[in-house]
């Protein structure tokens, strides 16, 4: 069952690894390099799941998340947050703002894949 996944991250190499992993799982992958572009892409392609980085130019991950939750069309889309800032305060902030899951970088690819499968299954 193919799902559409949007990756919003400004680190090209991370994006490449994520794209590979999702594609390998049989999902359709869209990519955005910053917050603004990511928000626009989400509105356009209506992904089934969004992988969101926190530290990004223009609009950071939390702002994107808020905008997503404010948008009725996207409010229910599950969001997995990835961040290199592993502080507890940020984790809580992400979850409070409505992210479904929160993973610190560097992440385990197996955990990430499992988590995404879980979120997509819950959604279905």
């Amino acid at each position: 069952m193919t799902k559409r996944i949007l990756i919003i991250d400004d680190e090209p190499n991370i994006v490449i690894s994520l794209e590979f992993l999702m594609t390998r799982e049989g999902h359709e992958v869209r990519v955005a390099g910053d917050g603004e572009a990511g928000l626009a892409e989400a509105r356009r392609c209506r992904p089934d799941l969004i992988v969101l980085d926190v530290m990004m130019p223009k609009l950071d991950g939390f702002a994107v998340l808020e905008a997503l939750r404010a948008d009725p069309d996207l409010a229910a889309t599950p969001v997995l947050m990835l961040t290199a800032k592993g502080r507890e305060a940020e984790r809580r902030k992400g979850l409070e703002l409505g992210a479904e899951a929160y993973m610190p970088k560097p992440f385990s690819t197996r955990d990430l894949v499992r988590k995404i499968a879980e979120l997509l299954a819950r959604d279905a």
Binding site: S17, L82, F107
Partner: peptide, 25 residues
């Protein structure tokens, strides 16, 4: 420190991801 951590984790994340990919596939 937070910046340094961030900057260190970012390449580390790539390194770990690709290492695992290469390992698993």
């Amino acid at each position: 420190m937070s910046s340094v951590t961030h900057e260190l984790r970012t390449p580390l994340a790539s390194i770990r991801a690709f290492s695992e990919i290469l390992h698993d596939d």
